[in-house]
Write a protein that binds this DNA or RNA. Structure first.
Lengths: 124, 124
DNA sequence: GACCCCGGTAACTGCAACGTAACCGGGGCG
DNA sequence: CGCCCCGGTTACGTTGCAGTTACCGGGGTC
């Protein structure tokens, strides 16, 4: 059930790092991918694969996703404090579209890159 | 073959106007939708359904789509000048993913709006 | 002579996104 | 005492995207 988080979503080898698709906020797709298996994740846990996103921006993204009903936020009154984010049923409905976007990127990004290279050599 | 362009892509009744999905540049999805039927369109023709986008931004969007191989740009040396944009085979491959995004929006945007309303009343 | 047509470009401006750094509380630990 | 833990918030500065306005050439039209 509790799948390991991807090591680095900015890794150039990860197709989603270069995808021309965005869902909601700039980083929403990454958060949803991290929560995809249904397991709740803590703030600092999400920061690991998204370490290039500052805590401020991550907090803003999480608030926006909570506002839109894509994730839930559960704060436990403990010491040290604990907050857990989890995907909702509504958030889960996004995956088919996200998968379609990722599949497109996986299949056609090389063609985009070669088109860019051809364009650059044409205009240089 | 030559379908009429949508009257106003910013119409609030148009699901794509409120979609949380983006493809490439902010306005790329609208351009591709305008070129979807395969007919070449002129710059001023594209400006009609996208009249809320300035000519500067539309020109930038078109250049980026041409650079990425999604559309072609054909300039005819006439008076008055004529330039025609048309979708490529690579651009056409985007439609399944775009359709998945649009279908999601059409189906689930009401749920997002009610989640926002509930959130606003919760935090007021 | 004045304005229109087309497909933009150039310069200026405003604003939202984003990054950085510092800071919070309240207990545990050395 | 002083630092760490967690989950952020606040202040500040920068960057880049987007919008506005003005302008182009070169012929046609009123």
């Amino acid at each position: 059930m509790r799948a390991p988080l991807p090591p680095d979503l900015f890794d150039p080898a990860c197709p989603s790092s270069a995808t021309p698709f965005q869902i909601g906020d700039k980083w929403a797709g990454m958060v949803l991918t991290c929560l995809r298996d249904g397991a709740p994740r803590r703030f600092t846990e999400l920061r690991v694969p998204m370490r290039r996103v500052s805590s401020k921006v991550l907090a803003e993204t999480l608030r926006a996703l909570e506002r839109d009903g894509m994730i839930t936020r559960a704060a436990y009154d403990e010491l040290p404090p604990r907050v857990e984010y989890a995907i909702t049923d509504l958030g889960r409905t996004l995956f088919p579209a996200m998968d379609a976007c990722r599949a497109w990127a996986a299949e056609h990004l090389p063609a985009v890159e070669s088109a860019r290279a051809a364009y650059a050599s044409r205009t240089s």
